[in-house]
């Protein structure tokens, strides 16, 4: 049974058809590359799966059961974690505070609830070590590099036992070495049985870690192929519309 399945999903913003009748399924431990030109609807698809807005029509199912998320928290409760394209971090807080934002660890002080700074820093340190990132938990996000911010956003997805992790252009704005780190992390997620959707404009990334690639063009799915049965040239053609598939 697929861990995530979309059937006939559409979404339009006014006259713009951001997504048009999308079907696909994703198994445990599968990594799906999601590609498409700017404005093809990739982020819209991710945001919808993550519960930011409901599909205009069609259904989303998790582990075979149809779900209707009304807010991001609902999706998170069902094991869906997202790294957004704009990372969604708070510059004025530390890395550890950002990792735990919305699910702070608490302790008590004289019977009253208080933030457990120590444990959050500790856990964040572990997570960053796991990601082999040099991010320091007590640094403010404002003073961080693109790669460090990325690590903070990704560390967030590791807090809970996620079933599906959605990564919206995690390798856009970071160095070559850091790209390798992110790809390594995706492999770890896969090994742990997590299903991953990786949005990227970078062909090499997709062809190194993904099992399948799905191409969107103007809101429509134009291809969904195992990585071994396609090539960067073909995918490029599908993205630009030079090749008409399906």
């Amino acid at each position: 049974m697929p861990v995530l399945e979309l059937k006939g999903v559409s979404k339009h913003f006014g006259a713009i058809h951001a997504l048009d009748d999308i079907d696909f399924a994703l198994d445990r431990g599968e990594v799906l590359g999601l590609m498409g030109d700017n404005g093809a609807g990739k982020s819209t698809l991710v945001k919808m799966i993550a519960g930011n807005f409901p599909p205009g029509s069609g259904t989303i199912a998790i582990d075979g059961g149809t779900v209707e998320f009304r807010k991001p928290l609902d999706a998170r409760a069902r094991g869906i974690e997202v790294v957004y394209q704009d990372l969604a971090l708070c510059n004025n807080l530390t890395a550890a505070a950002n990792v735990f934002l919305g699910r702070e660890l608490m302790t008590t002080f004289m019977g009253l609830p208080r933030l457990d700074h120590r444990r959050m820093v500790q856990r964040a340190t572990e997570l960053f070590a796991e990601l082999r990132s040099e991010t320091r938990p007590s640094d403010f996000v404002r003073q961080m590099s693109g790669g460090q911010r990325q690590a903070v956003a990704i560390a967030r997805t590791r807090l809970a036992a996620a079933k599906v992790v959605l990564l919206d252009e995690p390798t856009a704005a970071i160095s070559v070495r850091q790209v390798a780190e992110v790809l390594e992390l995706i492999r770890k997620l896969k090994a742990a049985g997590v299903a991953v959707i990786l949005i990227s404009h970078r062909m090499p990334d997709v062809f190194t870690v993904c099992d399948r690639v799905m191409v969107l063009r103007r809101g429509r799915k134009v291809a969904d192929k195992p990585i071994g049965e396609t090539s960067p040239e073909e995918v490029t053609g599908l993205i630009t519309g030079a090749i008409h598939a399906l």
Partner: peptide, 9 residues
């Protein structure tokens, strides 16, 4: 970052 805050619940 109000948007981010909303996303984190």
């Amino acid at each position: 970052n109000e948007h981010a805050s909303r996303l984190t619940g």
